[in-house]
Amino acid sequence: MSLHDDAVLVLKSYDDQEELRQLYLDHLAEHPDGLWKACEAGHVTASALVIDPERGRVLLTLHKKLGRWLQMGGHCEPGDETLALAALREGVEESGIAGLALLPGGPVRLDRHRIPAPCNWHLDVQYAALAPADAVEEISDESLDLRWFAYDEVAGVSDESVVRLLERARAAL
């Protein structure tokens, strides 16, 4: 099965955010390259919010290009077999934490946001990943900083999208 086929199946089985889910499905139907950065109409991305539920905190990255505290995530790559594995790969690459495990049940949220030209949109499929008890983060080349934030601190440092992602992830725990 191709990554494109997996993305369609994941989105068809996602049972929330109906309008946005359909927009993603329409995008993939209209754009066979809709998972790749080269698709100027926009592309599907995968992200993972790294959570430490035992300590009531999340790990956010200070994004190098945007200068904002966000979840780990980014573009799909040719070697990615599934959206879930793309999200997990991004989570591990950007956090430096081996042993992350995605919450079962698929994505917890979808978020569509504008990005600068030449592309127009990121259609982000957002997962939640549990950090192991002994997690030690390591800053990647894609990040200015990494920091753990208590759940109640996230609204003060990040945007509404991350706050909603955290709410959904906590509900899925």
Rank of each mutant, 00 (worst) to 15 (best):
G67K: 01
D5A: 05
L130M: 15
H113E: 07
Q126C: 15
E54P: 09
V58P: 00
A46C: 12
G42F: 13
D16G: 02
L165Q: 12
W69I: 00
A169T: 05
I139H: 00
L23E: 15
H63M: 10
E93I: 11
A46Y: 14
G74D: 01
D141K: 10
A86C: 00
C39V: 11
V58M: 08
K64F: 06
P116K: 15
A46H: 13
H63S: 15
D152H: 05
A150N: 13
V157C: 00
G105Y: 09
L49Y: 08
E77G: 13
A29V: 03
S47H: 12
E167K: 10
T61M: 14
A84G: 11
L165T: 10
A46S: 15
V44L: 13
P132T: 03
L28Y: 14
C76R: 00
L103C: 01
V50Q: 12
P78G: 08
L62F: 06
E93C: 10
H31Q: 04
E138V: 06
I51Q: 14
L110M: 04
A98M: 14
E40L: 13
K37H: 14
H43Q: 08
M72H: 15
G96Y: 01
P78H: 06
D6E: 07
Q17W: 04
H122A: 12
L103S: 02
E18C: 07
L103Q: 02
T82M: 02
V44Y: 11
A86Q: 00
A128R: 09
L23T: 15
A155F: 11
L100W: 06
E93H: 04
V92I: 09
W36G: 03
D15P: 02
W148I: 08
D33Q: 06
D6L: 09
A172T: 07
P107S: 01
L165V: 09
E81P: 07
D26T: 12
A29N: 11
E30W: 00
R68H: 09
V154Y: 01
L62Y: 06
A86G: 02
L100A: 06
A86P: 04
A98V: 14
